[in-house]
């Protein structure tokens, strides 16, 4: 009897095993998917954090496209040069050099500089605050709820004590996620060669702008006159705008600004270490 059960159970399990393996073998034939092995190899080179900086939804999609040749090997901003060279080696193509982009926050009106005309009690995101206008009187300036900092996947941004976001020059890879997240489009992506920036977006008349913020551009045209290159800065809608085709850097233009809202080459000073060191100092 015992032997009987032994044989029966071996037969039963063996039979089931064979039946299921047959079923799976057939299914595997019918449903097999062909995948380019280079996609897997590309995946191993890519950072795999699905940051979206390349404009594609995930690293896997990027890997597929890059193998097809749809996107350049230097398309992965998070990976930078290392990944680009790796992919180029894998696919047998050449790396095309691209200039590094940096996010620039074009507003200096923090808590200390801005006039507050309301108290905002809503959800603590810029996106929501933008609908009602937030608390600050300036409707062009930074709302200060840090949507951009949350959008940054590279730990390259932080809010300072003054309620303004700071981009760390050494950590920013130029993915543009923060610029996308900002409902007021204060953050812009600029190549490294751009040094001269007007840190204001206020397009109201000078008197109005000055009333709501101590560091607003009042369109006095001093920078336009002082700029090294003729036409390097223009006044558009009561706001000084740098024309980067003509002028990328000018120390002279920044000297006489009455509200101190134009600077030349200060982004470089914002490094992660310097930022946290200064925050600690102020805390003490």
């Amino acid at each position: 009897m015992t032997e009987n059960i032994l044989i029966l159970s071996i037969l039963a399990m063996g039979g089931l095993g064979v039946a299921f393996s047959l079923f799976l073998a057939i299914a595997d034939r019918k449903l097999s998917v062909k995948e380019d092995p280079r996609v897997e190899a590309a995946m191993r080179i890519l950072p795999g954090i699905n940051c979206g900086a390349c404009g594609l939804p995930s690293c896997h999609v990027f890997a597929e496209r890059v193998v097809e040749g749809g996107v350049p090997v230097s398309g992965c901003l998070a990976g930078g040069e290392e990944v680009a060279t790796g992919l180029a080696e894998l696919l047998g193509v050449k790396v095309e050099k691209q200039e590094r982009l940096i996010a620039v926050v074009l507003c200096k009106g923090g808590h200390a500089e801005s006039l507050y005309t309301a108290e905002y009690y809503g959800e603590k995101t810029c996106e929501a605050a933008h609908i009602t206008g937030g608390g600050k009187a300036c409707i062009y300036g930074c709302l200060g709820y840090g949507d951009c900092v949350r959008a940054c996947k590279f730990d390259a941004m932080a809010m300072n004590d003054n309620g303004l976001p700071v981009v760390f020059y050494d950590a920013c890879i130029g993915c543009g996620k923060c610029a996308e997240a900002c409902p007021r489009n204060i953050i812009e992506m600029h190549p490294e060669s751009h040094k001269l920036f007007v840190y204001c977006k206020n397009r109201d008349k000078g008197a109005v702008a000055r009333k709501v913020c101590k560091v607003a551009c009042v369109a006095c045209t001093l920078c336009v006159k002082d700029c090294d290159v003729e036409g390097g800065i223009e006044i558009i809608d009561n706001l000084a705008v740098v024309n980067y085709d003509k002028c990328k850097s000018s120390e002279a233009a920044t000297k006489r600004c009455p509200t101190k809202c134009i600077f030349n080459d200060i982004e470089r000073l914002n490094t992660k270490e310097a930022f946290y060191a200064s925050q600690r100092k102020e805390a003490v």
Partner: peptide, 15 residues
């Protein structure tokens, strides 16, 4: 083993 085989099948199908 029934469950494992079926899951394997679903996996192939979704893939």
């Amino acid at each position: 083993i029934t469950i494992a085989s079926l899951v394997q099948f679903v996996e192939m199908f979704i893939r």
